[in-house]
Amino acid sequence: MTASPRVPRRPASKARTARASRTEIELIWIEQRLEHWIRFGRIAGERILSRKSRVVLFRPDAIIAFVRWSANDYGTVHSRIDILRAVRPGDAYTTVPFVRPGGELLLSIQGWPKVRLCLEAIDQVEAEGLDPCDIAPEHWCHVHNRLSAGQAARAYTVERHQAWLKRRKLEG
């Protein structure tokens, strides 16, 4: 019996490696029926699939707010917002529909009254002059916990943001 010759493995191309490390979210828009959109997040790339759908790409560690809404002839059937951190290859993640591979879930709220409150919390951060992508990820966990318990979330202020930036700098 002869040994088969070893075929050298080809190193992964940089483009393929970069593409594999990105988080993909499928966005859909069917007027008055189904809408998936990004409320905030820095899009790193995009692929158009059809007139009604596209895939947006995010770099690792990007913070993203992904909103899903659907309706029938009688009104809203489902509304949901997920705020997640795009993961790096090898990181643990939570699967989320329409998100590949998934993400670190910071907030997951469903039902229009709570989704509306979450959107207001995002508006409040922007009213402070801050980008919701850049604030402390723990704030979105706080908002999730408070809204889930039926309580009002604390406002995210510029002072709170400065304290988080100092803490992040100390942590390295």
Score class of each variant (00 low, 15 high):
residue 34 L to W: 14
residue 94 T to M: 02
residue 85 R to G: 04
residue 73 D to I: 05
residue 35 E to P: 00
residue 58 F to H: 07
residue 12 A to D: 03
residue 75 G to Q: 10
residue 10 R to P: 01
residue 115 V to S: 04
residue 18 A to E: 14
residue 35 E to S: 12
residue 11 P to H: 07
residue 31 E to N: 12
residue 145 N to Q: 13
residue 166 K to P: 00
residue 52 K to P: 00
residue 109 I to V: 15
residue 75 G to R: 12
residue 124 Q to G: 05
residue 38 I to L: 14
residue 171 E to C: 02
residue 163 A to R: 15
residue 92 A to M: 08
residue 57 L to V: 01
residue 53 S to P: 03
residue 62 A to T: 11
residue 3 A to I: 07
residue 25 I to N: 04
residue 139 H to F: 15
residue 166 K to V: 07
residue 16 R to A: 14
residue 26 E to S: 06
residue 17 T to E: 12
residue 107 L to K: 02
residue 77 V to P: 00
residue 168 R to L: 06
residue 17 T to K: 15
residue 164 W to G: 04
residue 146 R to K: 12
residue 122 I to T: 09
residue 131 D to E: 12
residue 86 A to N: 10
residue 149 A to N: 04
residue 53 S to L: 00
residue 119 L to R: 11
residue 170 L to T: 13
residue 163 A to Y: 06
residue 78 H to N: 11
residue 89 P to N: 11
residue 121 A to D: 06
residue 150 G to T: 04
residue 29 W to Q: 11
residue 88 R to I: 01
residue 161 H to L: 02
residue 14 K to T: 09
residue 99 V to L: 06
residue 91 D to I: 04
residue 123 D to S: 13
residue 41 G to W: 10
residue 126 E to V: 03
residue 100 R to I: 03
residue 149 A to R: 11
residue 14 K to G: 03
residue 27 L to M: 09
residue 51 R to C: 00
residue 154 R to K: 11
residue 18 A to M: 09
residue 94 T to A: 09
residue 22 R to L: 02
residue 1 M to Y: 09
